[in-house]
Design a protein around this nucleic acid. Structure first.
Lengths: 188, 188
DNA sequence: AAGAAATGACTGACTAGACAGACAATTAAT
DNA sequence: ATTAATTGTCTGTCTAGTCAGTCATTTCTT
């Protein structure tokens, strides 16, 4: 390797993409992203073959970051409600701490540029959460519903809750708890 | 008026836009929409000044249609749970009956081409639903949460439920009920 | 150790294609 | 006859991706 690709530049591009996509949506020109990252237009394409590649890698990275943040410090011995609240709260905190990442992740998640392969990888990153949900579901009111339904409900509720925490940061804590209560009443 | 615009053509354009946007997203070229509607490229612009106008009007029309369908036949004298289920079920049926409209509405709702004015009009169409929600909330577990939070949760739960009904049409009825139960446990 | 050669990251001007909207000509309604 | 809808071509703009050339870094060769 004559000159190694710099991790630094890759990160700069990812961060720029996060910011620009959060602000302008997926229509954001690669040129804008490159400029925002402080690299030449063409450089972006030495790090990511196509725009779709960039989008997919960004999605995976953000999703994984959220998942690992949410799971960090989880004690599997604690009772289920406590574990669930741990994951819930840490997810919310991640979103509050990085609203741009959250917005970008939102846009990316809806896009149909994201390949099934990427979605499946993202799903893997969420596997421990899914496992926890499985144990919660098993003897709650949704014990007869398919697992994926439960996960989807959890995700949409946490999505909605996060929106409100960001909209009213003053009541963030209150909304966080209220959202969790809704979730727990629904499946716990 | 020398030659009146035909309601027919307007409808054709709207219907075509629904189909094309459902399939290709908002990136869909106006040319494709016009072709699909069986009119010339330029004609589209006599009915809608800009693409953004088309998008806004379509959003409003679909949202309104969904709302009126959901509310049709509602008896305000019935007990709250019954009324809620009426609205819930009719919403689900609308989505199941016109998956393309639903998909398009989804895409449009996320877009930032939709102006605040349009969103506010759409909100108005949903007013009776909001009123119903208000009465439900008033003495349920969410009585201390802001109204908009309750509505948002209702919308995201119905969104998620509809996804599952479409994904597994065989269990549509079961999912419809299960989704409503989640909702009712959450706020009712 | 010196320096020549090879490698590949990096640049930004460039290309090819797509797209929204304009417009001149045509058609149809009053 | 007049007015406005309708048509489809045309245009200016925008964008993903390319490419010829540059420059930093490593790897031979002597």
């Amino acid at each position: 390797m004559a000159k190694p690709k710099s991790e630094e530049k890759r990160n700069a591009i990812m961060a720029a993409a996060t910011r620009v996509i959060a602000a302008q949506g997926l229509g954001a020109p690669t040129a804008t992203i490159a400029q925002e990252a402080g690299v030449a237009n063409g450089t972006l394409f030495t790090y990511f073959e196509t725009k779709a590649d960039l989008i997919n890698e960004l999605y995976l990275e953000l999703k994984t970051e959220m998942a690992t943040t949410a799971l960090d410090g989880l004690r599997e011995s604690a009772d289920l409600r406590k574990q669930a609240f741990h994951v819930w709260k840490r997810s919310m905190n991640w979103g509050m701490a990085s609203p741009e990442k959250r917005r970008a992740l939102c846009q990316l998640g809806v896009s149909d540029e994201i390949t099934p392969a990427t979605r499946s990888q993202a799903h893997q990153a969420m596997a421990p959460v899914a496992e926890l949900m499985e144990r919660i579901r098993a003897d709650g009111p949704m014990r007869n519903a398919p697992m994926s339904f439960v996960v989807a409900i959890m995700e949409s509720l946490s999505e909605t809750t996060m929106d409100f925490m960001i909209r009213e940061p003053g009541n963030a804590d209150k909304h966080c708890k209220a959202g969790f209560d809704v979730f727990w009443r629904a499946v716990g």
